[in-house]
Design a protein around this nucleic acid. Structure first.
Lengths: 338, 338
DNA sequence: ATGTTCATTGTGAACGTTCACTGAAAACTA
DNA sequence: TAGTTTTCAGTGAACGTTCACAATGAACAT
């Protein structure tokens, strides 16, 4: 902590010739402060460059204007985008945001992160940890009665949530490919521990089943290009006969693309390839990748909006929104040729 | 804030039959606490699930065990990696980390972020905003005497720094390409406002100049694949004659790759292409991209280490480390053929 | 014995805010 | 006019910690 003592409320109060309480009122936009008094105080605040001490506010008040957010797998496109959009939305709503990173998939890691945030006396908790095996009920238990919003995964009764309708995404892909005449689809799934991966996988299965089909073959990856590459090689090695390949995200699609190339399978002539996410790179793959775009911006905004509502009105029921993803059709998918 | 009142130090003290001060001492690992007293207190702490209130600690203490970090362009690979590694290193050192995102390149934006962090009474400030136009002296002014560490950009006397030796990276690339016989190099630079982009550009110029060469042509992009695509098209449209193309990062290299393909210029037969960053995707481009790998992990770790040192020993001189990047040779670069 | 040090514990005050009251003046109401 | 409400401002006490200092007793040297 630095020597350069910051000004306190009392300094401002003295200079403005009012009591510290009045300064507090001005800061917190209380009504019942005379117009000229307010202006005088505001003027002194600007003059001194005074800004309230967050720690003291937090300690004394019964609301903190701080939101806590768990983060996870920030090196992944989706999570990173959500963090960015939540931070932006929170800032705009006048809330500070503090983060606690969840390092691994173990429950204790999630628990540690949440406890950590709780010790900051946050007004609300934005939960981003798109893993299965953590029910909304578990979360509620951990959080006590702190308002809770889940982002990127569906919530239960206890928590509001904003998520992408992954099932819809899977359906879009299945319908797109079947519409092109494909009946033999292979799949590179994301890690089983991720709800998104599960949802995409399941919806693909469902839609295929409705048409009396099932995937020719399926491998799991870990979201990385490398795992996509290896999964595709495994599929090829098994001799799986497929005319279309669905990857759980764009990065794995890239890896698969390379494996297909090496095996002499041309995309899209021999195999149609689709991904998930629409990362900025996807349009520049060779060929440009057909994929599913998800509006993470919207997710963050919606989640924070729910949070503000819950804080203002703790009794209200949880709200849930499902953002519909969009199919971005590029040239990695085409009519089946045989 | 929730109703579920957390336990306080006094609760622990009562249960353990000691004074609150003793509890405080146990928490802060003070010496001069009897072994059995310590154990008794620790036991009660565990039993009650007590964790100290951060706000109170922050307010009362003259150190906060909190580090502030400015963030910028989190959707970029480099910045995101640095945030991840700093958060990890800070956590391991027992420090909490709070972030303030810098939204645009304006000085006021940086200033706002720093002020914001200062109001949290942080023990130190990790500065990540790899933009030019912000001298270390400016920073010092803004921060008062709070220990300051710059990451990803070189610092001055006032602040320690951990950065990648970008000039070395540029040199590696230039030497690699000249070693392959290339003499006509074109370049797609990063945005001028970024120090990294500048440094890479300048070192390329320098090394070429030493060999009596200069770039055939040069365009600027904004790090996105799209901008790389457009820059490459611009180079081709100008009729620039080059056998090697240096991109400021891997994503722009990807865009350029696509533009070259569309123009019928094969990589590496007609044009050697090199990037910067070694993003996970780079190895799966077609062809796999020759690029420069930077150890961001190391950067974060080193930066936080400097920070800890500075906090412990405020008088000490600033330290600087330059991490040497490495050339990752893949197949996008080859002997010049004509 | 007697002072001197050292390990161990406790006490009161601070940190900078907000909250719950209280009071005075001004503005309505009857 | 008197009573009532409303606006505005101030006072004292929290919030949960750490800090500076004081106090106790044991160990040690003299």
């Amino acid at each position: 902590m630095s020597d350069n003592r910051r000004f306190t409320m009392h300094d401002v109060a003295n200079r403005a010739g009012v009591s510290y309480q009045t300064v507090s009122r001005v800061i917190n936009h209380h009504p019942h402060v005379a117009q000229d008094t307010r202006e005088r105080v505001l003027h002194v605040i600007a003059e001194l460059g005074y800004r309230p001490n967050r720690a003291a506010q937090l300690l004394a008040g019964n609301h903190s204007r701080v939101l806590g957010m768990t983060t996870f797998a920030l090196n992944q496109y989706g999570p990173a985008q959500m963090v960015i959009s939540v931070e932006q939305a929170a800032r705009e709503a006048g809330y500070d945001l503090i983060f606690a990173n969840v390092t691994d998939t173990a429950l204790e890691s999630v628990q540690a992160a949440i406890h950590h945030l709780l010790h900051w006396e946050v007004d609300g908790l934005v939960f981003l940890a798109p893993l299965t095996g953590m029910t909304p009920e578990d979360l509620r238990m951990l959080c006590g009665d702190v308002p809770l919003v889940q982002i990127g995964a569906s919530g239960g009764d206890g928590a509001s949530s904003a998520a992408v309708d992954q099932a819809h995404g899977g359906r879009l892909i299945a319908q797109h490919l079947m519409g092109l005449g494909h009946t033999r689809l292979a799949e590179i799934r994301g890690p089983a521990a991720w709800v998104d991966a599960q949802a995409r996988h399941q919806s693909l299965l469902d839609v295929l089943a409705e048409a009396g089909l099932e995937p020719t073959a399926s491998e799991a990856g870990d979201w990385t290009p490398r795992s996509g590459y290896e999964a595709a090689r495994a599929l090829l090695a098994k001799g799986a006969a497929f005319t279309a390949l669905v990857a759980g995200n764009d990065q794995m699609a890239l890896g698969a693309l390379r494996a297909l190339n090496e095996a002499g399978r041309r995309v899209p002539q021999d195999v149609s390839l689709v991904g998930f996410d629409d990362i900025p790179e996807a349009a520049y793959f060779d060929p440009p990748l057909t994929t599913i775009r998800q509006d993470f911006e919207q997710l963050g905004r919606q989640g924070v909006a729910y949070m503000i509502e819950r804080i203002a009105n703790p009794g209200a029921a949880a709200q849930h929104s499902r953002v519909l993803p969009r199919l971005i059709e590029r040239t990695s998918s085409a009519d089946v040729t045989r």
